[in-house]
Amino acid sequence: MEIKLKLNGSNIVREIAPDLLLIDFLRDNKCFSVKRGCETSNCGLCTVLMDGTPILSCSLLAARADGHEIYTLEGLQEEASAFVGFLADQGTDQCGFCNPGFVMNTIALLRENPDPTDEEILQFLSGNLCRCSGYEGQLRGIRAFLDSREG
């Protein structure tokens, strides 16, 4: 089947198999930031934005993206660059494999709630698993970014 969508700002038309998952479609289209960490919708590594909303690309058929706008981290480098340095300062990037999904969901959080409390940050990002960092440094990094904007 044919789908038309806007991927990272460009209109594209592709012929796909009806059972193709969005994550595989995106990786086929060179969006390598989108990672698979499980097969059960549990890890959050494959998070992308569909019409601005964070979703799991492993749990959606590519066909459902027809007519929609998808952003992966490849398309949001500038928005991510505004805050990821603060995560790097904490050393919390570690192995990096969960980073793209985590960064995408953080972008979604900050768009929806530009000044979140620690509790709101933890709640919003609870679907993004990380096995390296112990999470605390990720919170410190986001907090440092938010604090840097004040004053």
């Binding site: 390598f32 991510a80 990821v84 300062d89 050393g91 960064v103």
Partner: peptide, 16 residues
């Protein structure tokens, strides 16, 4: 506490 050498590549989702 210097940044990891690969930090930005990892945080910006590069194919590595």
């Amino acid at each position: 506490s210097v940044r990891k050498k690969d930090s930005m590549q990892l945080l910006l989702g590069k194919p590595v």
